[in-house]
Nucleic acid binder design. Structure first.
Lengths: 343, 343
DNA sequence: GTGAAAGCGCTAACAC
DNA sequence: GTGTTAGCGCTTTCAC
């Protein structure tokens, strides 16, 4: 029973899903009115609001955000890039970011760049191509080309977990150098003399370790020996790290670990070897993951407000996306050493 | 210097970004030809391919995937829903899923439903609205309404980490009941008599625990006492759990924990109390996270091939998205008990 | 192998 | 407060 007016050219058929058009027809209004009833209800009469709501409920309409994003140039999508979620340190940040964004009606897209940065370019293309309302970068961006593309894209960008001297756009982080220095001073203040480091070999962990070593030397201590293990850090690598440190002539009396997981490994290895913590060996971690406080002995560690970083990053991006001014574009969120039984 | 032909009506200006149109003009071809040069190069002459590639490089063109997705009805986006990434058990799955999808040109969108399921509806709307090419569900979907919407959306769906009798669409998982039963048999085989459980209170952990209890009874053992702690599980809750179990008249000689983190807590508490593992107390975890093997004593635990689950889920969705048949829609990936020093 | 036309489903811009 | 029109940037369909 073909319509006699049907043109010869076969029209492109839609996906079959309910569209705003269908809702509008059912509600007896124009599509744009239905759109307003859903997106800016205050612009529309209570009666229309009700009719549209009914039509939505009856049809099971779900707005097509691809179409909406294309038309409005607001995707309500935010991309986050982390080296690898299995690193654990960023988990809290990702979690709070997801949540803070969800509360404001935005969705998180997660990308993993890997610690090496090989897939970085493809990842950036996939991200920029989706025209997210913002990008959150956690950990360094390896390629200069990548930085250029991001700047060229004009998408609001937040760098986190670091305090670079030349931020691309916005930034919420802390100084890794300051962390290294603070831990050296802390251990020195505890009377420790033979400091050492077990660290992941990623760039920021290295910077903490180097600052730690430099500060120790500045305090008149011998230069701390350092063992670097491949990132991401694991318990096993912490055990291996301590084992390696113990091969030297002089036994260390303190270890600074670049992650709590490494520190747990060091604690484990020390226990197995009958090395008393903190009496013979002080152990300091980094991250203050949940388990740090519950270990026995409880782990002294550097606390980073990961949740606050995520929330602030969300705030930055949503403010920008909604056209609000962002006066303060760089925030040093700081850190603090949580002293527990392991030192 | 206004163009005299400019109509009175102000035209809607674009985002200012480079479009396929610009690339095509620069390459001296029609937009559709430029599109083909990028998306199906084999349909186009080498010469055109080169000219388009040059134009892309010169302009820094990044395809707008929102527009492409709207027109082609393929978003190259896959959504994953987990209760909370901080739960750790799903990390490996999410990681491998992200990676497997990225290799095939798809991007992962991550949603967290929370263990309670309160935000679930809003999350589903945000997901379905983006017309992903697939959805991966990890952990149960709480609301029946949610299930209905997902089915109605027609989006390929993979349920994971479980083996429900009535899958919505595709499924890759294992039986939690079988896990509980296997662990009970394992401990019984080791000669343990007074079995107990420390479990998260989420639905699947409960099912493992109940199957564990039922199997113990079937083996002629007394019914294992169970302590349930709020999900997500943590080290501290493992410590608390064991403390509570030890208050009873008869001390347990085995604990089955619903996660490795809980097990680490139990190990820690046992050590603090001078309870020898495995001599006085056998401990079994669940998940086989990286640290399980490196602990002292090394943790016996249930290994789940989280990475394989992620890869298979990716395979399922990509196959469907690209129109390939998926003959086997339900895969039991199994599990196995990794025996280590803690039992 | 290449192109013209017509949308995908939505919203910005302008009327009334 | 509501409607009309014209796109957003891309790809499908059909034609050559």
């Amino acid at each position: 029973m073909a319509d006699p007016d049907t043109p010869a050219r076969r029209p492109r058929r839609g996906s079959g899903a309910v569209t705003l058009h269908d809702v509008a027809k059912l509600a007896g209004v124009a599509p744009i009115t239905a759109s307003r009833a859903l997106n800016s209800p205050e612009q529309v009469s209570a009666e229309v609001r009700q009719k549209v709501a009914d039509a939505v409920a009856r049809t099971g309409y779900v707005p097509n955000l691809l179409a909406g994003g294309l038309a409005s140039r607001r995707s309500r999508l935010v991309a986050a890039v982390v080296p690898a979620i299995s690193g654990l340190v960023f988990l809290e940040t990702v979690q709070s970011l997801t949540q803070a964004l969800a509360e404001r009606g935005y969705q998180l897209m997660l990308g993993q760049s890997g610690y090496s940065g090989s897939r970085e370019d493809a990842l950036l293309e996939a991200i920029i191509g989706r025209r997210p309302d913002g990008i959150v970068l956690t950990g360094i961006l390896h390629s200069a080309e990548g930085r250029r593309r991001l700047m060229a894209s004009g998408i609001p960008l937040v760098e986190t977990w670091d305090l670079t001297p030349t931020p691309i756009d916005m930034l919420v982080g802390f100084s890794h150098e300051a962390v290294g220095k603070a831990v050296a001073h802390f251990l020195h203040g505890k009377g420790r003399q033979r400091l050492t480091v077990v660290s992941g070999d990623d760039e920021r962990a290295r910077r903490r370790s180097q600052a730690f070593q430099a500060a120790a030397v500045a305090l008149g201590l011998p230069e701390p020996r350092a063992v670097f293990v491949p990132a991401p850090t694991t318990l096993q690598r912490g055990r291996d790290g301590l084992a390696e440190l113990l091969q030297a002539d002089e036994a260390p009396d303190a270890v600074f670990c670049s992650s709590d997981l490494l520190a747990l490994g060091v604690l484990t290895e020390a226990r197995v070897r009958g090395l008393a913590v903190p009496e013979q060996l002080a152990v300091v971690g980094f991250g203050d993951l949940e388990f740090a406080a519950a270990l026995a002995p409880a782990l002294t560690t550097v606390h980073i407000k990961g949740a606050a970083i995520g929330q602030q990053a969300a705030q930055f991006i949503v403010d920008r996306a909604e056209g609000r001014a962002v006066p303060q574009r760089v925030i040093d969120i700081g850190f603090h050493i949580v002293e527990r039984a392991s030192t």
